[in-house]
Every structure is written in C-alpha cells, then in structure tokens.
C-alpha cells in the first residue's frame, strides 16, 4: 500500500528528510543542552568542535525538509507555518542564536564573551528542541482546522499539556543522543564525565516517552485506532526497545560508534513510528477530522511529485555519498588545533 502511489512515496520522503534532521541535528542540539554540565573552557571547546564541521550540514536537512514539504505538500506547509506563526518565529530565533553562538564564541578569549555565547548556544539548542517537539505534539494530537484547511486556533492552544510533554520528551531524546555522540568524540576525563550522563539520560527519555505514550493511549484515540488496526507497529516498537537497550550494552563493551549507530536507529524508528501512526494524515484536524490535511488532499500535482521524485533520485544518493565521506574524514576523537572553534 505504501509504495503504490506518489503521494505515499512523498509522505515517506518528507519523513526521511525530517528524520534525517532529527538524527543528525538532534545530537548537535543535544550537545547544546549538555553544555552547562561541562565547566572547563578546554572541555567546552571540545564540545563545540565535536559538532563544528558537521552542524550546518545537519541543519540543511531541516531546510531541505521544509523545501520538500513546500513542494510536495504546499497545503501542509502553508497551514502549519502560518498557523504556528509565533512558535515558528521563535524556532527561527533559537536556531539563529544557536548558529551564531558556535561561530562567535571562541573568536575572543574574554570570559564574559564566552559565557554569553555559551548561554546563547544552550538556550538556542534547548529552545529549538522544545519547540520542534511541541509542534510535533500538536500535529499528532490534532489542531482545529476549518473547512479551507486553515488553522482555526490561537497561539496558546498550541501550549496544551500533551504537546508540552512532547516538547520535554524531545529535549530528553536529543540530550540522550547528544551524550552518546559525545562519548564517541571525547577521551580521557571528559569522556568519563560524559559516560556518567548516558544512563540517567536514557532513563529520563524512557520515563518521558512512557508518560507521553500513556497520554497518547488515553487522550488521542485516533492514534490508538491506528495502533489497533496495524499490528505491524508493534514490531517497530520491539525494534525500538531493542535499539535503546543495545546502547548501554555497546557503551559497556567500549564500542562507541556502534552505540551511536544504535542511538541513530532509535531516532529513525521513533520517526517511522510517528509516520506510521499518522499516515495518511499530515495534520490531524480536531474536532473536525474531515478537515484533516492528508498526503492526498494537500499535495502538489502528480506531475510535480514525479519531477521532484526524479530530483530526489539524482540528488539524494550524491548527498548521502559525500555526507558519509565527510563523516569518515572527521571520524575519531576531537583534537583542538589552529582551525578549531
């Protein structure tokens, strides 16, 4: 069913782009959230430089995901971005603070300067993670849409407990992912310190995620219905549990890279669970489900979807090839040098 039509393919591809964003920029944002727990300037620079060469490439996944959403599902793009106006402007501010903090921070040696940008980095990273989570929470839970598919709620309707919980869960998830990434990129005392964070963060994430899922089962019946109809989803859940459980095991055996890959798998499985729970809905309308935006009523013309598929078929393999090459060139522990941040 999933691969028989262009709309479904683009539903998956947009999901892949945003999933790629969560998997890659997720650890950058997590590193930002963890920055206050590292005190020495040298160690902080290690943290910055662990993401230094890759963070802006990672942010491109969000830019491209947004572009693909615009191209393939303009109705979703228009409704969500205008409906969540203040939240998205806030997200932009957070991403700006995060970006310039990395760029500016180590350019001057003064203590106040570095502390200021460290805070900008942390606030930007946590804020962006949180707002991304809140937006996704609202999309899962459903938002009021009118008959023309325009958002019919206000800004404060977005701040419901369910979506706020999703925001907190996302911060916890990115922190967990960030700590596992850092464990791979650090050595010595700093690595020991990072290692101490991993288990508590995994537990924190599992607690948040369990509460969130309980809330989903109790308060979001349209997702519960999907779960009941598609037993296959439980297989994904099993893989998810295995992937998370594998992380401490790999850390214990000193296989940092495999722990990180396991964490990446966790991110992708979470994203596919999200997508499978939603399909074909892209924005669920509550209280009038008939106004929901779906992969079928919100898409561009078949011709555009086909052209875009050709563009993706040419572009994505090239992107993946050099992304892997670049991660390979910058693999291993971070060493500070003259080009470092």
């Amino acid at each position: 069913m999933m691969f028989s039509d262009l709309n479904a393919i683009w539903f998956v591809l947009v999901g892949v782009l945003f999933g790629g964003y969560a998997m890659l920029d997720g650890f950058d944002l997590g590193v930002g959230a963890l920055m206050p727990f590292v005190k020495k300037d040298h160690d902080r620079r290690i943290l910055y430089n662990s993401i230094g060469p890759v963070w802006d490439g990672n942010e491109v996944w969000l830019v491209t995901g947004g572009g693909a959403l615009f191209a393939a599902f303009p109705e979703v793009y228009a409704t969500v971005f205008s409906g969540f106006y203040l939240a998205f402007i806030g997200l932009l501010f957070m991403l700006i603070f995060r970006a310039v903090a990395i760029e500016f921070r180590s350019k001057e040696p003064w203590g106040w300067w570095r502390r200021m940008w460290d805070w900008s980095f942390t606030v930007g990273s946590v804020g962006a993670s949180f707002l991304i989570g809140v937006a996704m929470g609202n999309i899962v839970r459903g938002v009021p849409l009118d008959a023309r598919h325009e958002y019919a709620g206000g800004f404060f309707d977005l701040l419901n407990p369910y979506s706020l919980m999703m925001g907190v869960t996302t911060v916890a998830l990115f922190m967990m992912h960030g700590s596992i990434y850092l464990h791979m990129k650090t050595e010595g005392d700093l690595q020991q310190q990072v290692r101490g964070w991993i288990s508590p963060l995994i537990i924190l994430f599992i607690v948040c995620y369990s509460v969130f899922n309980l809330a989903t089962l109790l308060y979001v019946p349209h997702i519960t219905d999907v779960l009941r109809d598609q037993p296959l989803l439980f297989a994904v859940v099993v893989f998810l549990v295995l992937a998370i459980a594998n992380i401490p095991r790999e850390i214990h055996h000193g296989r940092d890279a495999r722990a990180f890959l396991s964490s990446c798998a966790t991110m992708l499985l979470l994203m596919s669970l999200f997508g499978m729970g939603m399909f074909p809905n892209m924005v669920y309308s509550l209280p009038n489900p008939e106004n929901s935006l779906t992969a079928y009523n919100a898409s561009s013309s078949q011709k555009t979807l086909r052209i875009m598929l050709i563009i993706a078929a040419i572009g994505v393999p090239i992107v993946l090839a050099y992304t892997v090459a670049i991660y390979t060139i910058f693999r291993g522990k971070v060493k500070l040098g003259k080009d470092s941040y």
């Binding site: 572009g67 052209i307 994505v316």
Partner: peptide, 17 residues
C-alpha cells in the same frame, strides 16, 4: 507550491548540502 516549492527543494538537495 506546485512550482516555487520545487525550486527551493532542489536548492536544498543540489546546492546547500
């Protein structure tokens, strides 16, 4: 969206990455 969005997406995939 049918037209303008494609150009933006192509910009992301081909150029920004």
């Amino acid at each position: 969206g049918d037209i303008f969005g494609s150009a933006l997406a192509a910009e992301g995939i081909f150029a920004f990455f």
